[in-house]
Structures are given as C-alpha cells and as structure tokens.
C-alpha cells in the first residue's frame, strides 16, 4: 500500500458527525441498562456479589424471563443522580465487577441459562485500588469465561463500549448495537491524548477510530443495529425498549436454532479480522 491509497485526515464534517454520535451515546437522559432491562425483560431479579468479597454496583447481574425463555443477565450500570453516579462509579467496574460477571457466566453454565449482556461503560476503572486488586487479570479471566460459556450468549451495546472493560461482556455468539452506541479501543479523549498528545482533538480521534455502529456492522463485529427513536434513545425510553425487545428475542432464537456451540463462538473471535486465511 502506498501513501496515495490513504484517506486524508478526517474532514471536519466527519469529525462533527462522529462526535455527535459519541455525545448521543453519552446523553445524560439516555436509558441505562436497568431502564431497558425493566422495560424489555420480565421478572428481573437482581443478584449480588462476586462471592469473593465484593459487590461492584457498576456491574449488575440477575435472572429474568423474556417471553417464554429463562435468562441470566449481566450489565454495566451507570448512575442517574449524583449519589447513584458515585455508587455506580459512572459504569466503570473494579476487578470485583468483572469477577461478578464471571460468577454469572459460571451460574448460567451450570443452570443451562442463555446469557444476555448490556454494555454501557466508559471502560474499566483506571484507579490505584483497581490495579492493586488485579484489574487486568480480572478482565483477562472474564474474556476466558465468555469464550468457554456453554450456553447461548447475546450482547447488546446500548451506549458506550469503552475498551477492554466493554470487551469483558461483549464476546457473545451475536452482538447487537443500538443505533447511537459505539465500541472503541479507547475513549476518543484517551485516543486523542495518545495520538495527538492533545485530548482536545477528541473529535478527530472519534472520526479516525471509526467507532460508530454502522462500521461495527460493516466489519462483522456487530450483527445487527437496533434502531432508536428519532433523535436518539433519550427522547423516548418506552419506544427504545419496544424496538429492542422483539429483536432480543429473535436474536436469541436465531443463536439457538442455528445449532449452538461455544466452539463456534471461539472461531468467530479467532477469525474476526477477515484478513487472514484460516
């Protein structure tokens, strides 16, 4: 490839569009995981704790029904009020959160429950205590747990999909992305700081990273884009849930009916680039 094949630096229009996408995904009135779980699933009952000494409120786990189906649920949870934002740590989990997710995968495997995950996190929490308790190890083990899960598994990116913290509950048999949600290797701010040495270049970084839902679909990282109400999910939670619920059920059915096998899930992530001959 030569320099002539390169796209030039993202045009201002691209940067503005990419940034608008990020802003909608982070809108303070956007429905968070529990808002959608309460509207899309039936009989949701939350469980607590990683059974190793912690219960991270940034990661929610529980049991529910969807139509006639039993489910295990894992979700990143952001807070709405000042108090809740602190308690939920803005949706950024500590190692206890990822171990709580692992517990849910273990439980689902033992009880033969399909898993649905809801992803909405800026990323894993970047703090001293998280590092002291093995943040990287916790995420790595959660990746491993997902790829070994012996039951059908569906992931839905409902807002921010930030980095390794998002990946910890994303490696499903099928991935759905809400229209204004995104998945990125790093937050646009962090990417800008690394690439341009200037977090103020976040708009350019967002465009250059091509983090929007449509790209994830084009590349096969996501299988379906879930439409949002005109203007974004924050304008109408009921309608957002009404658009999501039937698609959740249809996807779960599709995963199960095509002959479910965790080896197929591992193959999906082994070959995801689509660049190399197997």
């Amino acid at each position: 490839m030569t320099a002539g094949d390169l796209e030039v630096e993202a045009a201002p229009d691209d940067a503005a569009a990419a940034w608008a996408h990020v802003e909608v995904s982070r809108h303070p009135d956007r429905p968070y995981a529990l808002d959608l779980i309460q509207r899309c699933l039936d009989d949701f009952i939350e469980l607590h704790g990683d059974r190793q000494g912690g219960d991270d409120a940034a990661m929610v786990i529980g049991l529910a029904r969807l139509g006639g189906h039993r489910l295990a649920v894992v979700a990143n949870q952001k807070g709405r009020t000042l108090e809740e934002r602190g308690r939920r740590n803005f949706g950024m989990a500590h190692p206890e959160g990822y171990r709580k997710a692992q517990r849910l995968f273990t439980l689902a495997g033992r009880l033969k429950l399909p898993v649905v995950s809801f992803i909405d996190t800026p990323g894993a929490y970047p703090g001293v205590a998280a590092e002291e308790r093995g943040q990287a190890w916790a995420i790595a083990q959660t990746l491993e747990a997902q790829l070994a899960l012996p039951t059908p598994y569906l992931a839905v990116v409902i807002g921010e999909g930030g980095s390794g913290g998002a990946l910890a509950t994303l490696l499903a048999d099928s991935v759905m992305v809400l229209e204004h949600a995104f998945l990125s290797v790093a937050s646009p701010e962090a990417a800008a700081a690394i690439l341009f040495r200037d977090a103020g270049q976040k708009q350019h970084a967002a465009a250059a990273l091509r983090l929007e839902a449509k790209n994830l679909l084009e590349w096969g990282i996501a299988d379906e884009i879930v439409p949002e109400p005109e203007g974004g999910a924050h304008t109408d939670w009921e309608k957002t849930a009404a658009l999501l619920r039937p698609r959740l059920e249809a996807r779960l059915r599709m995963i199960t009916e095509r002959g479910f096998d965790p080896a197929r899930r591992r193959a999906r992530y082994r070959q995801l680039d689509g660049l190399f001959d197997a």
Partner: peptide, 22 residues
Amino acid sequence: GARMQEGVFSLMQMAKSVSALH
C-alpha cells in the same frame, strides 16, 4: 497494549488471543 491506529480491530486481538489459548 492496543495499537490505536487499528482501532477496534486492535481491541479484538484480545479476544483472538484468548480464543487461541483455549
């Protein structure tokens, strides 16, 4: 860690490597 210039494809290498380790 990740190679920013490869965006989400870089992120997915984490999944690829863990899949192979299985």
